[in-house]
Design a protein around this nucleic acid. Structure first.
Lengths: 204, 204
DNA sequence: AAGATTGGATAGCAACACTATCCATGGAGG
DNA sequence: CCTCCATGGATAGTGTTGCTATCCAATCTT
């Protein structure tokens, strides 16, 4: 497959593909002499991944590069694997979260994945909310955690055990990127439904 | 309060405040002659709102302008109010979602807020996932909806009924912006916990 | 009177994600 | 064999975004 075909099948211009090649988001095609290279299905899939991460996940080029780098050298351990996936999907910069918030999380009986990207993200999100005058009670937090466990139940499927580390990582990353918006939208729908039930009945 | 004080208390530079004034994100101070204007608590709160929307919510300047415009003229009806909040927090462009996906949503027994921003968002998120080769089953969707209803339970508080439309809108917008990252982070933590339980036991 | 501060206007800047152009090569069709 | 278009590789340019920086006259403070 030549680059023009890759462009046609993915809907991405040649100029952009060259850019992705330069930036290391796309592995080079198998070179067939100086002016020809061969691209295959792995390139098509990679381009689709990159576009999904950019369009849906709103990841920066630099962050996408982190993803493909991780995919090229996936961690062996299945535990580190999810951590890697969560790390590249982090929202804020990966600095150390406030000590006090971390202590609070562990004291609530949430799993002690201390230092894991997910816990760090949680701590930073909680700290940001508190700093903006929106503290979240222990009761709300544990209730939300229970609810999100039900959501995550569909995420951690047995099939993962049978996949190669690279495929599992790909699965975890793209699954979260694609379904986070669904989960958030469902939250909004639920809000509207509850609002209608609680306020609409009484008028206004 | 002069502009320099506003800058000091909010931690935003004067140049940026002037930019926000130009862009209509910040209402002008009460003019005291040609070279002086007076800013008050409403300006401090507005600047904090803008910074939260930008830093945490990653909203563009244009989207923030939508928010403040809506806050200046909040809808009277409490039902439209949540819709307004959800509309300014939309991820993708507010185009019409695919017909088939909408039909599927309503057929699942999800509330028939047809055309509401939340339903539109959901339809678009589902369509995007499907287009990227990640279809979401009816079972998963209903299970997730049940879970997110539990999350939303903490969002739609009775106090909302007693608030002014503007305050309620502010509450809904900033609440979602600040807690979406918390909810998503909890999902990740739950994924790690489930992964540990399901895969760690069997080794690897 | 001197100096700093303000509002208002305009211009500049850095980052980001492409997009366009140029060029030498080289394979394919005639 | 010759022409011609696609390709790889390199480099430069572009549009958008979110600020910054500078300038100016007016005015407030000291």
């Amino acid at each position: 497959m030549r680059i023009s075909e890759l462009a046609d099948t993915t809907g991405v211009t040649i100029a952009t593909l060259k850019y992705y090649l330069r930036e290391g988001l796309l592995h080079p095609g198998r070179s067939q002499g100086a002016t020809r290279a061969d691209y295959d299905e792995t390139h098509v899939e990679r381009v689709r991944l990159v576009r999904t991460l950019i369009d849906v996940g709103r990841l920066s080029i630099e962050r996408v590069r982190e993803v493909v780098t991780a995919l090229d050298v996936p961690p062996e351990s299945r535990h580190l694997l999810l951590g890697t996936a969560h790390d590249v999907l982090r929202q804020s910069a990966s600095g150390p979260p406030p000590e006090a918030v971390v202590a609070r999380i562990t004291s609530l009986g949430l799993p002690d994945c201390a230092g894991s990207p997910a816990s760090t993200q949680l701590a930073q999100a909680l700290a940001a909310a508190e700093a903006a005058g929106w503290p979240i009670s222990d009761a709300t937090l544990t209730s939300w955690y229970a609810a999100m466990t039900r959501v995550a139940d569909a995420d951690v499927v047995p099939e993962l055990a049978a996949m190669s580390p690279g495929d599992a990582l790909h699965h975890a990353i793209i699954g979260n990127v694609l379904t986070d918006p669904v989960v958030i939208a469902l939250r909004r729908v639920a809000q509207e439904a509850l609002s209608a039930r609680r306020f609409e009945a009484g008028g206004s």
